[in-house]
Write a protein that binds this DNA or RNA. Structure first.
Lengths: 112, 112
DNA sequence: AAGCGTTATGTATATACGTATATATCGCAA
DNA sequence: TTGCGATATATACGTATATACATAACGCTT
């Protein structure tokens, strides 16, 4: 069974910046309130998740995620309004692209 | 400067089958009439190009590329009509997706 | 039979990447 | 001041991928 796949992402000066991975991470952070739990739940190492957050915050005009350490619960992570906005727009773009792909059946027809 | 990137490809039973790489290779083969020259021109090792052609021909209903060895010119490679058809349809899909991406400016606006 | 240019194929090396592991740091609460 | 749970950071290791290199096989032409 052949299927058309599509992936979109945002680059900043040729460097990968925001894509499906970061988008899922932001969603998990929102659910969990913790970077380590978010990373674990999506099968990503904490280190990779942490580095990803650094890159996101560096390249964005304003931080997308705020990390807090120490305190009553040991710390935590939260998605900023800017983070929410990007998630919303990114998923919006993905939806539009998926619609185009769903309409396209000619390619699959050739491949059988 | 932030830019939206998009990539589409075809999978067969979860395995990558046809995408931008194979598409460029087919185009080069058509131009060069030789797999080794096609691979060299696009900076791909001959071995990788050869394995790619094997995968393409195995997963497609009919061969997309025909390789001939020996003979007056040592051999050669040519794209079959089925290969041409897939190139055409794939580039058609890419064009449609690019149009959607070009229209989408909200995401970039959020990122600045 | 020899030469040519291309396809065909294996092997060893290098490189990148993710992962695991270990440890330090922080700040509130008890 | 001690403990807790989370963030912060470096190092080593294993695996997958890509590359380089070497060589065989092929079939037409001369």
């Amino acid at each position: 069974m052949k299927k058309i796949k599509v992936k979109c992402w945002v680059e900043d000066e040729g460097e990968k910046f925001y894509g499906p991975g970061p988008n899922e991470l932001l969603k998990r952070i929102q659910e969990e309130g913790s970077l380590s739990r978010a990373a674990t739940k999506m099968g990503m190492s904490y280190k990779k998740a942490w580095e990803l957050v650094q890159r996101l915050n560096q390249h964005a005009e304003e931080p997308l995620v705020i990390l807090k350490k120490g305190g009553q619960h040991g710390g935590g992570a939260e998605v900023t309004p800017q983070g929410f906005e990007i998630m919303r727009e990114f998923e919006n773009l993905q939806r539009k692209i998926d619609e185009v792909v769903d309409q396209q059946t000619d390619l699959i027809k050739v491949l059988k």
